[in-house]
C-alpha cells in the first residue's frame, strides 16, 4: 500500500487508482458494528455539522433570487405569482443541489482530505494496516455511505429553506404578496423535478466525498503536502460536481 501512496503518474494512473479505491471501499467489513459506528459518526459530522451553513446560504440564495425575479417581472406583464414558481423551480432543479454541493465541497472536501492526510502522515493508516484492517474500506466506506444519505437530506432542507427565504424577502420587499408567492410555488408541481434533485444530490455527494478522500488518503510527504491535498480536494471536487451537473442535466432533462 505504501508504494501506491508514494507512486505518482499521469491522469490515467490516478483514474485507475481512484477506481480501485472505490472498489475496495465496498469490501466486506471485518466487523459490521465498527463500520456502522463509524458511519454514524460521519453522518453526524457531514450532516449535522453542515446544517447551519446550508440553512444560512440557502435562505439568502432563495431571498436574493426572489427579489431579482420580482424586480425583473415588475417591469413586464407577467403576473407576480411567477416569482414563487421560478424560485421553486430554480431551487429544486439547480440551486439547492448544485450550490449546496459546491459549498459542501469546500467544507467537507477540505475536512476529509486533511483528516485522511494527517492520518497518513502520522502513520495512523499504517497502524490500521498492520492490524489487518482494510483501511480503504474502514476509512472511506463509512464516509461515502454517510455522504450519500446525508447530502440528499441537506439538499431537501436547502430547497425548502430557499423557497421560504424567497417568500420572506419577496413579501418584506413589497414586490410580491405572500399569497401570490405561495400560489406560484404550488403551481405546476412536477414530482419528476424532485427525482432529478435527489439523483443530483446523491451523485454530487458521492463525487465530492470520493474525490476528497482520494486526495487525502494518498497524500504523502510533509504538512505542506496536506495543505496542497486539501486545496486539490476542494478544487477537483467542485469541478467534478459541475461536470456531473452538466451530464446529469443533459441526461435527465431531455
Amino acid at each position: 500500500m505504501a508504494e501506491y501512496v508514494h507512486a505518482s503518474g499521469g491522469p490515467l494512473f490516478h483514474i485507475g487508482r481512484y477506481v480501485l479505491m472505490i472498489k475496495r471501499s465496498f469490501a466486506k467489513p471485518e466487523r459490521a458494528a465498527m463500520y456502522w459506528k463509524e458511519t454514524l459518526v460521519q453522518m453526524n459530522n457531514i450532516g449535522v455539522g453542515s446544517l447551519v451553513i446550508i440553512l444560512l446560504i440557502s435562505f439568502f440564495i432563495g431571498a436574493v433570487s426572489a427579489v431579482q425575479f420580482a424586480y425583473n417581472l415588475s417591469q413586464s406583464m407577467v403576473p407576480m405569482y411567477y416569482v414563487g414558481f421560478v424560485v421553486k423551480e430554480s431551487m429544486i432543479l439547480e440551486l439547492a443541489p448544485t450550490v449546496s454541493c459546491l459549498i459542501l465541497g469546500g467544507k467537507i472536501g477540505s475536512n476529509l482530505a486533511s483528516e485522511l492526510g494527517t492520518m497518513r502522515l502520522t502513520e495512523q493508516i499504517d497502524a490500521l494496516e498492520i492490524m489487518g484492517v482494510n483501511t480503504i474500506s474502514y476509512l472511506i466506506g463509512p464516509k461515502l455511505a454517510a455522504s450519500v444519505t446525508m447530502i440528499p437530506l441537506l439538499v431537501v432542507i436547502s430547497a425548502i429553506t430557499g423557497i421560504w427565504g424567497g417568500l420572506l424577502a419577496g413579501s418584506m420587499s413589497g414586490y410580491v404578496s405572500g399569497a401570490d408567492y405561495l400560489q406560484g410555488v404550488l403551481m405546476s408541481f412536477k414530482a419528476y423535478n424532485i427525482f432529478v434533485m435527489m439523483v443530483k444530490s446523491v451523485v454530487f455527494g458521492f463525487v465530492l466525498t470520493s474525490v476528497s478522500c482520494y486526495q487525502g488518503f494518498y497524500a504523502h510527504g510533509s504538512a505542506i503536502e496536506i495543505g496542497k491535498a486539501s486545496t486539490r480536494a476542494v478544487v477537483l471536487s467542485c469541478v467534478m460536481v459541475l461536470f456531473a451537473d452538466l451530464i446529469l442535466t443533459w441526461l435527465l432533462l431531455r
Partner: peptide, 15 residues
Amino acid sequence: RRELGMLFQGGALFD
C-alpha cells in the same frame, strides 16, 4: 497481521 503488533516512531495513536 493479527498476530503482530507494532510500535510506531510517533506512536500512531488515533487522535
